[in-house]
């Protein structure tokens, strides 16, 4: 009898604990809903259906940029002009009227680790803020990938067949490149202008803006951007720590222009701490052919993996 009583007491205990767990779980959900609640994405009509609906840019972002009149003389740029120039480069790196796909080669050279080469395919649908990356080489990692739509981001491990969430701040492949480098740039939102000057980079006259982050979500608190004013493309970016230590320099040495969009197809990253360490990202092919909807699903990521 004593055993039966013990068993019953155990079940009663389990039931009470179950109810307590349900209450706790409900509280978590309520807090979750509150934490994530907020106004709908921006847009003239209050909804999120516009071309930029997916990434929650400030109201009138596109319209303000489209009508903005830049000074003819690069020495007359103000801080606000430069911020609008950065916005223009952000927008022009995107494809809002078509999908985009490309194959990307990345080669990293390290004095201690030697030379590593990766190759990936990327698929973008910027109007939905959707991005899919699939590892193609090395063969041992083929099929690993990442899917991001809005703020939902998954990584897939084909060995365990498991999807996991990750963040855009992660360093990409233990290199000086971060996942954020593959996202549409939003530096015009994340940084404010501290100082402006002009100069030249090779054959090109550039405006040099020194920027300071206005939030701590970005990987680098300070940036120094070199932008060619004529075509409004970024040629060089220096990235600094809070103590103004140069951590990385990015060079955008080749672009392709498709319609109004500019894609930096050769990007060279020089490590600031290890002078002999650098990497190069090269687009080996590119297309704006429409992509099937199922490309931007977890199922596709799982299917094309090993």
């Amino acid at each position: 009898m004593a055993d039966i009583r013990n068993v019953k007491a155990r079940f009663l205990n389990a039931r009470l604990t179950s109810k307590l767990s349900i209450v706790l779980f409900g509280l978590v959900l309520v807090f979750s809903a509150k934490a994530q609640g907020g106004p709908p994405p921006g847009g003239d009509h209050g909804g999120g259906g516009g071309p930029m609906g997916g990434i929650g840019l400030p109201l009138g972002f596109l319209q303000q940029d489209k009508d903005y009149k830049f000074p003819d003389d690069i020495t007359k740029y103000t801080a606000n002009d430069f911020l609008m120039l950065v916005r223009r480069t952000d927008i022009r790196s995107s494809f809002y009227n078509s999908d985009m796909s490309a194959t990307i080669s990345m080669v990293s050279v390290s004095p201690d680790r030697g030379t590593f080469a990766n190759k990936e395919q990327i698929f973008r649908r910027d109007k939905d803020d959707a991005f899919l990356m699939l590892m193609v080489e090395p063969e041992s990692r083929k099929g690993q990938g990442m899917l991001r739509v809005d703020n939902n981001m998954w990584r897939y491990d084909p060995t365990s067949r498991k999807f996991t969430h990750t963040t855009l701040k992660d360093t990409y492949e233990n290199s000086t490149v971060t996942n954020n480098d593959f996202r549409r740039w939003q530096r015009s939102i994340d940084y404010s202008v501290e100082k402006l000057s002009t100069g030249t980079l090779g054959n090109y006259k550039v405006i040099i803006g020194e920027l300071k982050a206005n939030n701590d979500e970005v990987p680098f608190p300070y940036l120094k951007m070199y932008i060619e004013a004529d075509r409004k493309i970024v040629l060089k970016v220096e990235e600094y720590s809070l103590s103004m230590k140069l951590l990385r320099t990015a060079y955008y040495t080749q672009y392709v222009q498709i319609g109004d969009s500019f894609v930096p197809t050769v990007q060279i990253f020089q490590d600031g701490l290890i002078p002999e360490k650098r990497s190069q990202v090269t687009y080996t092919d590119i297309s704006t052919k429409p992509l099937p909807d199922y490309y931007f699903t977890k199922e596709y990521l799982e299917r094309v993996s090993q």
Partner: peptide, 10 residues
């Protein structure tokens, strides 16, 4: 050209 297929850059 870009929307019709893949353009090889390298």
């Amino acid at each position: 050209t870009a929307s019709a297929g893949t353009v090889q850059l390298v």
